[in-house]
Design a protein around this nucleic acid. Sequence first.
DNA 1: TTGTATGCGTTATCAT
DNA 2: ATGATAACGCATACAA
Lengths: 343, 343
Amino acid sequence: MTIKEIAEKAEVSVGTVDRVLHNRGDVSKKTREKVLRIVQEGNYEPNLFARQLVLNKAFTIASLLPKHRKDDYWAYPEQGIRQSVEEVKSFGIRNQSFLFEEENEQDFEKVAKKVLQSRPDGLLLAPVIYEKARWLAAQCEQERIPLVLIDSDLPGSSKLASIGQNAYQSGKLAAKLLHFSGSNPDICVTNITHRNENNDVFKQRKKGFLSYFEEHSIPVQIKEVNLKVEDGNFKKQLGKLAVALQEGDAVFVPDSKIHWLAGEVHAQGKSGKIRMVGYDLIEKNKYYLQTNTIDFLINQKPELQGYLGIQSLYKFIVLKQQVQERVFIPIEIVTKENLEFIS
Amino acid sequence: MTIKEIAEKAEVSVGTVDRVLHNRGDVSKKTREKVLRIVQEGNYEPNLFARQLVLNKAFTIASLLPKHRKDDYWAYPEQGIRQSVEEVKSFGIRNQSFLFEEENEQDFEKVAKKVLQSRPDGLLLAPVIYEKARWLAAQCEQERIPLVLIDSDLPGSSKLASIGQNAYQSGKLAAKLLHFSGSNPDICVTNITHRNENNDVFKQRKKGFLSYFEEHSIPVQIKEVNLKVEDGNFKKQLGKLAVALQEGDAVFVPDSKIHWLAGEVHAQGKSGKIRMVGYDLIEKNKYYLQTNTIDFLINQKPELQGYLGIQSLYKFIVLKQQVQERVFIPIEIVTKENLEFIS
DNA sequence: TTGTATGCGTTATCAT
DNA sequence: ATGATAACGCATACAA
C-alpha cells in the first residue's frame, strides 16, 4: 500500500495524506479520521527507499565523551561509534566527536555548549559528570535533539535511550565469583578513583557486591579502602595494601583501575594467591589477567555501547522507528582462558 | 556523483551512461571508454535507494531451523528473526520459515529441497545436521544464494557469515567456574542427548572443558556419563546418577538438557550441594537456577543469533555491504542473581 | 548508436 | 483546508 493508494481510497490528495501521516495540521478532523482509518486497515508501511531518496539529507550525530588516549577505556566506545557510523553513512549519517576532560566540570560545560551550538540532529552522551549532564539533557529536550546515553544512565532525565550495563547486578556477580572461589572471609573492596570522581556506577557496583553477602547471610569481613590516584602517597598506600593481603584473601575493585593494585600484587610475587575481580578489558588489565594476578574481569563491552548508541539514533532519526529505551549490555566474564577470544 | 553528472561530463545522455554501466551494448567503443573513465575517476557509487525504488523488488530470506515448541531452544532464534525482519521489512525484506525434525536426516533433506525450490534471496541456516548442511551450503554457493549460519559453524563450507558462540571456550569457562567453586576433585561430565545426536558443538564444549584441567595440570577425576532421552531406562539411569552424586561433587552438562538431571537432584533434596553448570536459558533451566540446583548457566543468546543473522543478510543483500564473516556471541554467565535481568 | 521521457513512493513547496 | 507538482537518482521503453 502506498500513499497514492491511500489518497485514492480516501478521495483526497497525497498532500493531505502526508499531512495526516506527519501530523502537520491543516486537516479537518473528518478527513483526518478517514485517512487514518484507511492507513490502519491497509496497515500501510512507508517505503523507506523512497523516503531516503527524497530526504537525501545529511544528519549529524554529535558524540560527547571524555578525552582519551590510546588504551583508555573511552577509546573503545569511540571505536564502536566509528564502526557504526561507517555502516550507516549511506543513510546520510555523519558524526562529530566532542571531547571533554573527564573530571573537569568547567570543561564539560564549555564543550557541551559547543555541542549545542553545532545544532546536531542527535547526541550520544557519556554522562559521567552528572549535574552538568542533567543540564545538557534538559537542553536537548528543549531543542528536541534526540539524546542517547551510554555507560551510565541519568534517571529522571528525558532521553531517547540509555545503553549500559546494570552496575548493581555486575557487582553481585563479582561477589558470587569471589565467594565461589572459596576465598577467606576477609574481603577487601578497594576504590581507586581520581580526585574529583563521584561516580554513581561505582557506587552501584559496590552496593550490588555487598548485597550478595547480605542476601545470602554470608558472614564476611569487608574492608573498604579508598585510594586517589593523584594523591602524593598513592603508590605508597597501594604498596601497603598489597603487603597486607594474605594468601586466600579477595579483592574487588569496582573499576578499570584495578591494574594499579594488580601491579603491586604482581610485583610482590603474590600473583595467583590473592583473588582479584575488576572491570574492563584495557591492555593493562589484560596483562594482569594473563599473569594470573587478576582472576576475573567484567567486560562492559564499551565498543558495543558506542555501536548500539549510534544504531539507536540512526533508527530513530532516519527510520523513525521506536527504539528500546533501556538497553542492557551483557555482563561478560573474562578469564585468562577466554581472553584472546573476546577482544 | 550521479548518473546525470556523469552524463554531463561525458557529454552524452543518461541513457548512454546507463547502457555502459549495465553492459547492454549499443554504445560506440569511444563513448564507452570515455564514460568508464569518468565513472572510475569520480568513483561513482550508485544510490541504492534510488535503484531499489525503481526496481521495486522484495527480497525473501528463507530460514531453516529445527522444529520447536514453545520453550524449546529453537524457539528463541526464531524470535530474534522475527524482530529483525520487523525492523527491515520496509526495505522489502520478507522471511519464509522452514522447519525440519531435529534428528531426521531425511526430513532435513526434504525441507532443504523445498527451500531451494523457493529460490530465496538469502538463507539463514542452523546446520545441526552436518552432512546434509554441507550439501545445502554447496547448493547455495552454486545458486549464489548468500548463506548465513547460526548456532554452529560449518568449517570448510563457503558462506557469507557464521554466527555463534565459541563452544570450546565456553567449555573452558565452565571448567574454571567449577574449579573455582572448590568442588571435589571428582567431576562428572554428563552427556544427555537424543538418540541420533552427534553434535560437534557438544564435543567442542567437552573438549574445552577437559583442556582447562589439562593445561593447568589440575588433578581431577573425570567421569563421563552418556544418557539418551529416548532410552527406556533413561529416567532410572538419571535417578541412579543423582543418587551417586555426593556433596561437593560437580557436574557439567554441555547442553540445555541439564534440567533433566537438575530435576532429579532437586527431587532428592540435593539442591545447592552439587555444583552444576549447563547451558541455555530455557524455562526449565531457569527454574532450577532459581531453586539453587544449577549454579551457572551459559547463555548462548539464541535470539541475538537470529537477530544478527537477518541483519547480516539484510546488510549484504540490500545495502551491498561487506559483513563480518565470523561473529562471536558473548559467553554470558547467568546465575540466580542476575537471571531476572538478562531475560 | 544515442537521447528523451516516464515512473518508482515520498516529501515539501506553492498555489488555490 | 486541500490539491497540484517538482524533486530525489535510477532504470528503461520508446523515439529519433
